[in-house]
Amino acid sequence: MADLLKDPMVLREIIMDHYEYPRHHALTNGHGYLRAHMASESCIDDIQVEAKIEDGIVRDVNFEGVACTISTASTSIMTELVRDKTVEEAREIMKNYFAMINGDPYDEDLLEEAVAFAGVSKQANRIKCATIGWHGLEKLLAESEKKDD
């Protein structure tokens, strides 16, 4: 797996697959879900993210919206990565993901398929695309912790 994730062809396929068949790509609008509408970061991408966070664990994450390949695929991969993780684990994954996008050192084992977006750090105009869904989840995690206080 680790070797496969170094092959650009495989990484490209991962992005295309998550763009054409995004995972968890329907909001439940269910009870106990927090929601974030990420429409003001750019005037093209318009993404909604919802998450159910219980007892410090991310039970469910879904998203919906109109967006480019990078925002759709990066959010889709995120929904898989953080599911069933504790809030602290999810934060650690996020921290490493943002580090990767900013071109800083990161732990690739934590990011799994999300390493496909490492190249985005070289395309400054797409950094917003690669982080829009992740910033949505970041808001929800903060909101859930506020509720717990």
């Binding site: 650009p8 490209r12 295309m16 763009y19 390949t69 990078i70 190249g119 985005v120 395309q123």
Partner: peptide, 10 residues
């Protein structure tokens, strides 16, 4: 193509 568009990142 979609492949080439995503290919820009590699």
């Amino acid at each position: 193509t979609l492949e080439n568009c995503v290919g820009v990142f590699f």
